[in-house]
């Protein structure tokens, strides 16, 4: 065997091996997808076969009916509304704050910046009880406000992400605009904002994922089924009281993941970049 054939064989082995692991990795996802087209009987009788015996679309219809007269169109509408407003608030406020940290010189900046980093690391769930009591006193329990409002005051992870990005822009840009008579505010809106678009898109993608998937918040704050988000609605499929219709659960689970997966494949590049910029020294 000469050198090149050896290399090719090595390559083939590598790819076969990786493909096998790949399959293992996405098997649960495929299983859910194909499971959503199986009849209840099919799911239980042939759990090891990935593909449905006969393609069965009724699960989507049954699942969509939802619970107690509230259909999944309500849950989707709720989730979409909450996600859009919350994501906008998180990203817009984080951009403003990040600019302040990256480009303004003011007293106490280091202290506030370290506070910001500490809040980023701080486990949010530990604040849930007093926050709940506070929102309750505002009359916000069983509304979407606790899920939306805090985002308008910045989200440390995105502040940090945008901050890192702004710091990599040449400072001469700001300076020349300043000499031309622009104030910091104008510089931010006219010059910096258009340049940090990639960082904003990355933040938006992450924010969308997290808001869309958020379960803890909606479960605690929402009591009326008409206000439920998809994640809380999906959980109802696992309630012991509910007659478990696995096919319907898979069907709705697939639909709930569809937006996330679509965004993922469309904006992959931004995601990878975002992870590399925040994960590193900068």
């Amino acid at each position: 065997m000469n050198y090149t054939t050896k290399k090719i064989i090595k390559k083939i082995i590598f790819h076969v091996f990786i493909l096998a692991i790949c399959m293992l990795m996405i098997y649960p996802i495929l299983y859910m997808f194909f499971g959503s087209f199986k009849t209840q009987q099919d799911i239980f009788q042939n759990p090891t076969s990935l593909f449905p015996e006969k393609w069965h679309f009724k699960n989507y219809v049954n699942g969509w009916k939802g619970f107690g007269g509230t259909t999944f169109s309500t849950f989707f509408k709720n989730s979409i509304f909450i996600t859009i407003i919350a994501v906008f608030g998180q990203v817009a406020s984080s951009a403003v704050i990040a600019y302040g940290f990256a480009r303004c010189r003011f007293k106490g900046k280091t202290i506030w910046f370290s506070i910001m980093i500490i809040t980023m690391l701080m486990p949010q769930q530990v604040l849930i009880i007093p926050q709940y009591i506070m929102f309750n006193s505002f009359g916000w329990v069983n509304t979407w406000l606790p899920l939306i409002m805090p985002g308008f005051f910045g989200y440390p992870f995105f502040i940090f992400l945008v901050y890192q990005f702004i710091r990599r822009l040449p400072e001469e840009l700001d300076e020349s605009a300043y000499i031309d008579g622009c104030s910091k505010y104008t510089i931010f809106f006219r010059i910096v904002l258009p340049l940090i678009k990639p960082a904003l898109i990355t933040s938006m993608i992450f924010a969308t994922y997290w808001k869309w998937d958020d379960f803890f918040g909606p479960m605690i704050y929402l009591t009326d089924i008409k206000k439920y988000t998809i994640s809380v609605a999906l959980k109802m499929f696992t309630d012991p009281a509910a007659q478990s219709d696995w096919g319907a659960a898979y069907a709705m689970a697939c639909l709930s993941l569809a937006p996330v997966v679509i965004i993922f494949f469309t904006f992959q590049k931004y995601l990878v970049e975002g992870i590399s910029t925040t994960g590193l020294k900068g």
């Binding site: 649960p28 996802i29 994922y209 998937d213 994640s231 696992t238 898979y250």
Partner: peptide, 20 residues
């Protein structure tokens, strides 16, 4: 493919499947 599970793994949807 390897990154996809991270994107959706935290969701209720995946937990429901995992249970099964």
């Amino acid at each position: 493919m390897f990154y996809l599970p991270s994107v959706i793994g935290g969701s209720v949807a995946v937990a429901v499947v995992w249970r099964q």
